[in-house]
Simulated scan of single mutants.
Amino acid sequence: MTEGNFVDYVKVHISSGNGGKGSAHLHREKYVAKGGPDGGDGGRGGHVIVKGNKNLWTLYHFKFQRHFKAGHGEHGGKSRSTGADGTDVYMEVPLGTVVRDTETNKILFEITEDQEEKIVLEGGMGGRGNWHFRTATNQTPRYAQPGISGQDTQVTLELKVLADVGLVGFPNAGKSTLLAAMTSAKPKIADYEFTTLKPNLGIVEYRDFKSFVMADIPGIIEGAAEGKGLGHYFLRHIERNATLLFLIPADSKDISQEYNILLGELERYNPELLDKNRLVAISKCDMLDAELIEEMNEDMKEDFKDVPYLFISSVSGLGIQELKDRLWTLLNE
């Protein structure tokens, strides 16, 4: 999937159907000149329903359809015939989609299971026919209820990527290169910051035909939790990852400080992110010799005593298999 086809945020206008009118019909047949009321109820208006589809990975299809309108209910008829309900309209979304009210930004619900259905906008109720209003003193009511009108609103669909492992790091830390080295994904790779603007997903093949999904999240910068550098758009994807892999390049000025900045941004955005399993990978170690790696290892033992770390190189393959083993262990704890 190319970056341009990955759509994870879209606003959609939706309309539910009007309820049908109840009938005020009075029964008439050949030898019954003045029959009683027999008006049927109107049908309800169509609902707008959001439905989960495990085969979808993006909201791309909403680029071409931004308006969804359900059908209106049919009017009631004679002989207490109820009008047909309006046609429901379905909006299929990938798993991990959050539905918000655009005006209030309130979360309405989230779709996490395949074929899960949630009514986002109910259709109007159908009106009752005059048969319901007959009484001892008014045996031929000539009125019926009108149907209730449908509703119009705008909702925001927001996709949070569902992946086992999320790559977290500053721009240009080598996340896309690592994803390409560990999976068959082909993310855009270049020597400048913010090469990746949309998440990339790849399947990591493990031993004995086992696998797990890894997501390359766009780079985080200091101040991302406050929205700097499209921070909110990037950080929301980390919420659905089971394990976080922090990627810090070996040529960083201060590896420990860089890790703490990343951790601080996650904590400010959502403190619950710190409850996830974490692993730190020092990337671009093909630039180092064994002696320098050992020296760095000694310096890092004190700062990273609470979180596991290892040295890797996506180019030379150094530590890649060990990284897969560590991630698999974390995912299955």
Score class of each variant (00 low, 15 high):
residue 18 N to Q: 08
residue 35 G to H: 10
residue 36 G to A: 11
residue 38 D to Y: 08
residue 40 G to V: 04
residue 42 G to Q: 03
residue 48 V to P: 03
residue 49 I to A: 04
residue 63 K to H: 04
residue 65 Q to P: 00
residue 70 A to I: 08
residue 73 G to I: 05
residue 77 G to R: 13
residue 80 R to T: 06
residue 80 R to H: 04
residue 81 S to P: 00
residue 91 M to C: 14
residue 95 L to I: 13
residue 98 V to Y: 14
residue 103 E to W: 09
residue 105 N to S: 13
residue 107 I to H: 02
residue 115 Q to G: 00
residue 118 K to R: 15
residue 118 K to C: 06
residue 120 V to H: 07
residue 123 G to P: 03
residue 123 G to N: 03
residue 128 R to K: 15
residue 136 A to E: 02
residue 147 G to C: 12
residue 149 S to E: 10
residue 150 G to A: 10
residue 152 D to E: 13
residue 165 V to T: 03
residue 166 G to H: 10
residue 170 F to V: 04
residue 184 S to P: 00
residue 190 A to V: 09
residue 194 F to N: 11
residue 196 T to Y: 10
residue 197 L to K: 15
residue 204 V to H: 05
residue 213 V to S: 13
residue 217 I to Q: 03
residue 218 P to V: 07
residue 218 P to K: 12
residue 223 G to P: 05
residue 227 G to V: 09
residue 228 K to C: 00
residue 228 K to G: 02
residue 229 G to K: 12
residue 232 H to P: 01
residue 241 N to W: 00
residue 247 L to Y: 07
residue 248 I to T: 07
residue 256 S to H: 15
residue 260 N to W: 14
residue 260 N to K: 15
residue 264 G to R: 10
residue 265 E to L: 09
residue 270 N to V: 02
residue 275 D to R: 15
residue 278 R to I: 09
residue 279 L to R: 06
residue 283 S to C: 05
residue 283 S to Q: 08
residue 296 M to Y: 14
residue 297 N to D: 14
residue 304 F to W: 14
residue 314 S to G: 15
residue 315 V to D: 03
residue 317 G to N: 06
residue 319 G to H: 10
residue 319 G to S: 07
residue 320 I to G: 00
residue 321 Q to I: 07
residue 332 N to W: 06
